[in-house]
């Protein structure tokens, strides 16, 4: 499925379950997302992680609503518990099956996002491994002088921002020297299309989920 339409579908579903309270719809959505992930050969480890990661916050909400809220509403407690899992599994059906590049290309070509936004953010996202090591370097350099830079110290952020300023300048220069000109029309080597199948999948899934959301508890 086209990356931006898939994202739209996931966002619409997440928004709708935030405002409705149907336990069965949540369970159907979780099952559907897991099924989708399995077709796309997601590793067992990632699936397991999806189960573990939201468990604590979901449990916290469940306990608070069921034992400590004025109504002791068990149904609503389960709705909130499963809602966390809808967010995470639906989100994963997008993030684990599409790359930032797919999304950037689709947003630029199908939805006319200005190319400077598409490629600018893409350039930054591709620096992630370097960013991780830059932060480790900053902290280690501090430790060598006997200074502990914790996550609440302004110096850590200051130094990290200096690195970001430097890199953004370099990346922008690199893009310009490779012929990137802001606000100019571009041609595409890799063409992304939205097919009629993409649209029908979006509409069918959205319509199909309305039934359990509004009719089942």
């Amino acid at each position: 499925m086209n990356a931006s339409l898939k994202l739209l579908l996931v966002l619409l579903i997440s928004l709708e379950v935030s405002f409705t309270q149907s336990l069965s719809a949540n369970l159907i959505l979780i099952t559907g997302s897991l099924f989708y992930l399995m077709i796309h050969k997601t590793s067992f480890r990632s699936l397991l992680l999806l189960g573990v990661v939201p468990f604590l916050p979901a449990l916290g909400l469940f306990v608070t609503i069921y034992y400590f809220s004025p109504d002791h509403d068990l149904h609503f407690a389960w709705v909130l518990f499963t809602r966390m899992y809808v967010y995470v599994t639906a989100g994963a059906s997008f993030t684990l099956t599409s790359t930032p590049l797919d999304l950037a290309l689709s947003l630029e070509q199908n939805w006319h996002l200005p190319s400077k936004f598409a490629y600018g953010t893409l350039a930054a996202f591709n620096m992630l491994p370097k960013i991780k090591s830059a932060i480790v370097t900053i902290r280690t350099a501090g430790l060598m002088r006997g200074i502990v830079l914790s996550w609440w110290s302004p110096q850590l952020y200051f130094k990290a921002i200096l690195v970001a300023l430097n890199w953004s300048e370099n990346l922008a220069q690199a893009m310009i020297s490779h012929g990137f000109v802001e606000d100019q029309p571009r041609t595409f080597y890799r063409q992304i299309k939205i097919t009629i199948i993409d649209y029908s999948m979006l509409i069918v899934i959205i319509l199909a989920i309305q039934l359990p959301i509004w009719l089942l508890p």
């Binding site: 400077k116 490629y119 996202f125 310009i176 802001e182």
Partner: peptide, 12 residues
């Protein structure tokens, strides 16, 4: 484009 990269880098 420089500002956009900077913002995304800060976010990350």
């Amino acid at each position: 484009v420089r500002d956009i990269i900077l913002l995304a880098l800060i976010g990350i």
